[in-house]
């Protein structure tokens, strides 16, 4: 079972690093924001997995907060770019 957790964590870290490439390289601003969006979703899954690995039910609250607040940063940056703020 532990081996399965390590494989899952390795895949998530690999996905995070690959998305970070586009974040640091991306030619225009929206490319980087797309990469940030993908990284926030990957890290939400990672937070839920950490709660499973540590076997603490209360740790999943952090993933709950991320799932519902993570999109607010992206929406505010997008509204800034179309002169909404």
């Amino acid at each position: 079972m532990d081996t399965f957790y390590y494989i899952l964590g390795g895949i998530l870290l690999l996905a995070l690093v690959i998305a970070a490439f586009r974040f640091f390289q991306g030619p225009t601003a929206p490319d980087r924001i797309v990469a940030l969006d993908a990284m926030s979703i990957i890290l939400t899954a990672g937070l839920a997995m950490l709660a499973l690995v540590f076997h603490r039910f209360i740790y999943i609250d952090v993933a709950l907060i991320y799932a519902i607040l993570g999109f607010m940063g992206i929406v505010s940056i997008a509204r800034w770019m179309e002169k909404g703020i």
């Binding site: 601003a29 929206p30 924001i33 797309v34 969006d37 979703i41 939400t44 839920a48 999943i60 993933a63 709950l64 799932a67 519902i68 993570g70 999109f71 992206i74 929406v75 940056i77 997008a78 509204r79 800034w80 770019m81 179309e82």
Partner: peptide, 27 residues
């Protein structure tokens, strides 16, 4: 609680994608 998280992701994530695509097109 995990079903709650799934519902939240399904509600909130498409809004941010839509806003980002629109902002990119307008900029």
């Amino acid at each position: 609680k995990t079903i709650l998280i799934v519902v939240f992701i399904a509600l909130s994530n498409p809004i941010s994608s839509h806003a980002l695509a629109r902002a990119a097109h307008r900029s």
